[in-house]
Amino acid sequence: MNHETILLEYIKQELLRGRKSDLKVEDDLLSNGIIDSLGILQLVAFIEERFHIQVPDEDVVFENFQSVKVLSDYLAKF
């Protein structure tokens, strides 16, 4: 499974829990409050454990986390 699929599944199942089952990779996760500040903490912890990488704190910014697509592109750099 690629980053996009894994992230989409995690966000739908663990963070949204059925609230938005039609979530797309381009959907804005942040502006519409789909993921809140605690959700971001969980997402970063998940990424670090699942992909065995350390996300630098200063990289946790809007530009890297806005959508599943943007986040996957960011993770591809590791």
């Binding site: 500040s37 903490l41 704190d57 200063e58 946790v60 910014v61 809007f62 530009e63």
Partner: peptide
């Protein structure tokens, strides 16, 4: 201090 928009994560740390 740090990048624009990174304040929440700096605070969390």
């Amino acid at each position: 201090l740090g990048p624009v928009g990174a304040g929440a994560n700096i605070f969390k740390d």
